[in-house]
Amino acid sequence: MSAAALRPDAEQPAPVAALTGVAQRFGRQVVLRSVDLELPAGTIVGLVGANGAGKTTLFSILAGLLQPDAGERHLFGSPADEVDAAARARLAYVAHAPQLYAGLSARENLALFADLRRACGLTTRPADEVLLALGLPLAVLDRPLATHSRGMAQRVALARALAGRPELLLLDEPFTALDARGREQLAQVLLAERARGAAILLSSHDFDTLLAICDRVVLLERGALVRSAAHEGDRAEFRRSAAAIWQAGPDDPVSPAPDLC
């Protein structure tokens, strides 16, 4: 599964983000073995894997919070040994936890990060617009964050990420804590982001939602991207091959399917 094989069409422009042979280990604990991943513009890539498979580490490396032990990281078409502020301005990372200041209201949290962006001359879109699309009533924005439910905090974190119109959107389990309606709304928002041209990497345990919106699904297992399935026009075929990936046990060979590596 080389990087080229993962790319649906080799003649496409350079991907928004790419990892080549990225590895990370702490002593004898291997988190990532050798990960090749490309995130082209205007696609949603679903990342599935058991807990502890290395998903969060993968996100951290892409977001520049962690330097890989080995391998290369390309962001926005150029090698990124360090993810500098200019590169961080073009990506957004929503971690597993909402990462919001509990002492501030939701609006103040959003305003702080918008102001920080503005200090580098970057614009943000009004948070209200995103929040409404995510189904968060604006009336609750001024309440202290401690009174928000986990789902509401998750929406605020998503709004903070989307406000900067990122070209690369890294979402670690964004559907957790959202109710069925929230998931539907987030799915619509993500499809709109894809239409805008953003590259999205999305991890989730909610396989049905992933299948509904992703262009490609990759399975991260024991620190390596082992199998992938791409959506090539036929939703039912994609669903079948992706389900085969998901259901294959750690050591089971996958039954023949169109886009397996």
């Binding site: 280990r25 002593g27 004898r28 291997v30 073995r33 024991r222």
Partner: peptide, 9 residues
């Protein structure tokens, strides 16, 4: 440690 990792691989 690295060798253990490769063996695991």
């Amino acid at each position: 440690d690295a060798a253990w990792v490769r063996l695991d691989d």
